[in-house]
């Protein structure tokens, strides 16, 4: 067993876990933060995207031990005091989600995109989302939502 400590959504946590524990398992099973999802076993779908030290990362592809001491943000840490972040609000406004399963990963990934590129073209948005699979929406309204959030966040 191994003791890991990190900051998750602003709170410091320390847990003793099996050294093989993936970050996504750590979040879901040990912290009960079940908003981060698992959609695949080959690091392809992006349902598990979180931010580690401000960068998007696939939580299914890292060990909890690897992020020792890091600052982790999950989908649960995005809204403030119950108010949706402009990115979340835009997903709602533009119907960028249906079943909601890919949604946390999409939102986390989109937030990272805008950090790198606050004014992306549609093509750049679509390209950035290559690592996030959505089976429901056909992506069109996700792109629309991200563009609308980008505009909102620029202003």
């Amino acid at each position: 067993m191994l003791t890991v400590s990190m900051t998750v959504n602003g709170k410091e946590v320390t847990k003793t876990v099996d050294p093989r524990t993936l970050l996504v398992t750590f979040l879901r099973e040990h912290l009960n933060l079940t908003g981060t999802h698992v959609g695949c076993d080959t690091s392809q779908c992006g349902a598990c995207v979180v931010h580690v030290n401000g960068q998007s990362a696939k939580a299914c592809t890292m060990l909890a031990a690897q992020v020792e001491g890091a600052d982790v943000t999950t989908i649960e840490g995005v809204a403030k005091n119950g108010d949706l972040h402009p990115m979340q609000a835009a997903f709602k406004e533009h119907h960028g989600l249906q079943c909601g399963y890919c949604t946390p990963g999409m939102v986390m990934s989109a937030l990272d995109l805008l950090k790198h590129n606050p004014d992306p073209s549609d093509e750049e948005v679509r390209h950035w989302l290559e690592g996030n699979i959505c089976r429901c929406t056909g992506y069109q309204n996700i792109v629309k939502a991200i563009q609308s959030a980008a505009q909102e966040m620029r202003s």
Binding site: L33, T34, G35, T36, T74, I75, E76, V78, A79, L84, Q88, F91, K92, L97, G100, T103, P104, V107
Partner: peptide, 8 residues
């Protein structure tokens, strides 16, 4: 949407 967008 609210619950899905907030991980709930």
């Amino acid at each position: 949407d609210y619950r899905f967008l907030t991980g709930k």
